[in-house]
Design a protein around this nucleic acid. Sequence first.
DNA 1: ATCGTACTTGTACATCCGTACAAGTTAAGA
DNA 2: TCTTAACTTGTACGGATGTACAAGTACGAT
Lengths: 183, 183
Amino acid sequence: MTARRPQRARDPEARKAALAAAAMEVVAENGVGRTTHRAVAARAGLPLGATTYYYPTLDDLIAAGLRHALDTLKTELQAWDERLREAPDMPEALTQLVQEYLADRRQVRIEYELFVTAARSEALRPLAEAWLNDIPETLIATVGISTARDICALLDGFILQALVSDTELDAERLTAAIRKLSS
Amino acid sequence: MTARRPQRARDPEARKAALAAAAMEVVAENGVGRTTHRAVAARAGLPLGATTYYYPTLDDLIAAGLRHALDTLKTELQAWDERLREAPDMPEALTQLVQEYLADRRQVRIEYELFVTAARSEALRPLAEAWLNDIPETLIATVGISTARDICALLDGFILQALVSDTELDAERLTAAIRKLSS
DNA sequence: ATCGTACTTGTACATCCGTACAAGTTAAGA
DNA sequence: TCTTAACTTGTACGGATGTACAAGTACGAT
């Protein structure tokens, strides 16, 4: 075909990453089921053909978006770990971290979007499972692996509640609950 | 048009209910974003036109499916309440109930599907919120409203973990955690 | 310098989608 | 019996979608 517009500078890796980032945003806004090649391409400012060139199928594109979101979350989790290590009171610090996490609902939404999709798709399950098992080292060191898991489950429940009802987190209640579980 | 096939016996209410039930199943299997008029109609064994006759838009059809699922869950919750009242040990009984609930993953999946959708759609939020706030009366009577909420959040977290990793529930750990929160 | 491969881009196509609607059918009331 | 409104059904249509692909371009290897 006649490529009227002049080609842009070539940078395949940057393009692939840009598409993954765009896919993440579209998933956060529209959900996995309403994520399309065209929406992702438009968000990335790239032509439609670029999506299928780097990600053969739509599932690949979506998976790349979710993977990208998890990468972001994982670096955030490392920051959590450091702050927990220096905190004088673990339950309060953890509550604070959850509160900050909830500030950007888009990020939270995509996490649960991943969970729901993983529950249905075999291919995405390892990804979601790995994220669920990614628990701050400091928390494990403080209360043990078993209790650490309990606390994480509690956090997920609280986050879900805040997400659905679109309300603030009940910080004092969460802190108290974490303290009970930590004993 | 020439309606070649003879019309079936008329029963509008039954048709509407059948469509809602079929919508619920399609949502459980494909997710909200991949639920279509045609898939629901096929599942219900009804012609495409029946869907738009009873539910003007696709959103209405999906909302009916989610509502239908919640109705099912609500009756189940009442059964929970009775079993909790008669149980000798509350934490153990609750764990047992969660275990039974998790036996049918389809039901669980649709619940979280509702949550994720409600997080994005204003229209569905009240529905999801109502379900989140529907806590067994017996539990409230036993440990108080605040602790009852904490326990429910914990259950949601455990259920999510089991759903995503497609593994059995760790019953002993859950029972112990509930006990800690109940104190 | 040229060649070939990797990359870029616009467009094509079959399929599916939501929704509209005309035609046919039932059943209840006048 | 006739009328009328509610219900049923098949089909139509404009638009969006996943994917394929031909045509064009940049750039490293030779």
